[in-house]
Structures are given as structure tokens and as C-alpha cells.
Design a protein around this nucleic acid. Sequence first.
DNA 1: GCCTCATGTGAACGGCGTTCAAAAAATGCC
DNA 2: GGCATTTTTTGAACGCCGTTCACATGAGGC
Lengths: 208, 208
Amino acid sequence: MMEARHTSTSERRQAQLDALVDAAERRIATGGIKALKARDLAAEIGIALGGLYNLVPDLDELALRVSSRTLNRLGEALTATADRWPLATPDDAVNRLVAIAQAYLAFARGNLSLWRTLFELRLAGDAVLPEWAANDQLRLFHHIAEPLAVLLPQQTEAGRGLTARTLFAAVHGIVVIGLEDRLIAVPPQALNAQIEWLVRATCRGFST
Amino acid sequence: MMEARHTSTSERRQAQLDALVDAAERRIATGGIKALKARDLAAEIGIALGGLYNLVPDLDELALRVSSRTLNRLGEALTATADRWPLATPDDAVNRLVAIAQAYLAFARGNLSLWRTLFELRLAGDAVLPEWAANDQLRLFHHIAEPLAVLLPQQTEAGRGLTARTLFAAVHGIVVIGLEDRLIAVPPQALNAQIEWLVRATCRGFST
DNA sequence: GCCTCATGTGAACGGCGTTCAAAAAATGCC
DNA sequence: GGCATTTTTTGAACGCCGTTCACATGAGGC
């Protein structure tokens, strides 16, 4: 053991785990979740096949860790976009919502495989969602709920949360189907315009 | 060979293929696409393992055939719903669109695993979508485009087609995320109301 | 130096989709 | 019917997969 000085076992394990998640991320980004092979990963980070299971209980959890990273990068992208748009008037709110939706599309386009695995992951039977994953998601919804507070000041927090989820899901639907070449969908070059139209239309729906 | 009289080879092959797709459909409906195992299927329809590949080139195509059935049943469900709603006035059109969207949700709920495999199927690299599959999809969009013609008489056919795709994708997004227990989403009991709200809001967006 | 114990290893296991040489059945011909 | 030829069916075998576990390896305390 002991290749670097002052390196405890747990520190090395953490470094190996980081390398593993790095490798997993690269492989998913290149070849999708189907490209996550135990033997390839072990070879890439220089440990024996069985050693993987000292770092991670199974490959599903590895994909989950990659997804967590992706979700955080998505959050940063949305934050960066939101910060570029003022939020004083209702018009500002609508514009920011449009910008966020389009940033979502841009992120999905630019991180296609990683973004897809966010939703392809179906955990085995027991299906207990780790709480950190839930928190990651809640943080995303905040980006939508915030402008909604300007647009719908009279609504309750819970009501706006529901609206935020609905709006997100609708935009998400356009993006999923639009980026899926197998389906007859909104053509890729029209996606931005259609998303903008949908967001503006639903926002107009608030006032009537 | 020859167990039933006047049964040609090709007729028996067709019967076996039907039995195979039946079995595949049952297994997907029960356990999702992960439950589609070559050995189980062969045993269930009473042929040898290798015999499967006389009926179907691989399991992906089998899943595709099941998906075709599902798509057709979905089409029938939407047709039945559409037929129950008049289409004389713009108000009628909006109401019908809402009804169709909710019928889509109901179908997804009632055929969860089969409906999911419609979208989980990612065909290998070459990615040529069989034309019959494309036609199935086009027929579905017609159900949305038809009311849109009443709502947007001045628009071109192509423009309405684009709107139909966008509207479908948005509703689809709410349904996918809403029926996915892994994600924080619109709670199931609120799905109907949220879908109705979205459809009505976007329809109001047409006139302004 | 030596014992102890945590850590790392890779052969092995069970399961998967798919293939293919060989067996079996059907068909054609006398 | 009997034999040769072709078609169809069979299941053992292949290669790959995720995961496990008996064993080897090396570090830390004495």
C-alpha cells in the first residue's frame, strides 16, 4: 500500500472513489448509461474488478452519484442564467422564466447522455430515494418558484410550488421528446421558439 | 411437425409469432421491459430457446412489436374520447383537447409499464425508425391537430402540426414526471387538474 | 522477526442475448 | 412404402455481464 506519504486508508479510498465517479461520468457522457461496465471502470482507475465493490455497493449507486453531479451542474447553469435577468416586474418574471426554460434546453443539448441518465435511472424495487437527491431536485424548483412569486403574489407557497412543478414538467416534456430522434416531435431548430411560446402562454394564463 | 390440419409452415409461424408477442406483452405489463427474457418467453410459448430467432431477429424488435400494439390501443382510447366531445365551437375544441389530454393520462396510468416502454426503447446505433411506427405516431397527432383546426383556422396545416406536437409534448411531460415516483413532481391526485389548467392556459394563449 | 488483521485480488458463479452444428421433421421423387 | 434432399427445430455453447468470495498481500503493533 502507501504510495503517497501521509495517506490514510480512508483518504486513499476517497481519492479512488472520486476517480471512479470521474471515470463513470466520462463513460456515460460518451456512450450513455449502457457504457457503464464494471470491468472497464476497474481497469481505468487501476484497481481489481472486485475492488469496485469496496468503493460502491453496485453500479446503480455509481450512476446515482454521477447523476448527482449532473444535477448540481444543471443547478449552477440555471442559477447563472437566473442571475442575468432582473426580477422587479411581472414582465421580468416572465422573461426570466423563458430564459430558465431555454437554459434547461441548452443544458440538455450540451449534456445529452448525462442528462438522459437523470431520468433513465430506475432504482430497484425498494425505491427509496436518497434524501440528498431529493434536495438537489428541490433546489431546482426554487429557480422556477422564485419568479412565480412575483407573478402570483396572492397564491400560497404550496400553490406556487405546484405551479412550478407543472411548468417544469411541461417544458421538460418538450425537451425530452424534442431531443429524442426516435420520435416524431418538434423539430430541433424550432424547440427554442416553442418553449418560449409555451412559457409565455401559460404565464398569460395566470392573469385570466 | 404438423399438429393442426391444413396448417402451412408460414401460418404456424404466424401463430407462434402472435403467441410470442402476447407473452411479451404480458411480461412487460407485469414486470416492465426488464422482464423480457429470451428463455422465459421461449418456455412460455413452448419452443426451444433458439427458435425465438426464427420468429424475431432480436428482443428489441419484439419490444417494438409490443410497443406498436400499445400505440394502437392508445390511439383507440383517444379516438373513443374524442368521439364523445363535439367540435362545433372553439369552446368545444378546448374542452376536447382537455379531454384528450386527460385520456392520455388515464391510459398511461392504466398501462404504466407498457406505456413506459414506448419511450424506454432506444434502438441500437443505426436508429432507423420503421415507417409503420412513424405512421402510428402521426395518427396520434391528428387527434390534437383536429381541434386545433377549429381553434386556429387561420394557421397553416404545418403550423398547427407544430403546435400539436408542442402541446402533446407538454402534457406528456407532466404525465411522465407525475407518474415517476423517483422524482419530486406534481402529486398524482393533482395531475388531472394541472393538465387541464395547462391545456386551457395554452389555448388562451392562442387568442392573445 | 512475527503475528494479526484489514485490504486488495481475480477466478468463479449464475444469468443474459445470441449463434450454430447437429438432430428432427417435412417434402419430393421413385 | 422407401430413400434422398431440404427445411425447420433444437439446446449446448459462446461471449459478456454484474457480483461474490476464498485467498494472497502487505501494513501496524509487539
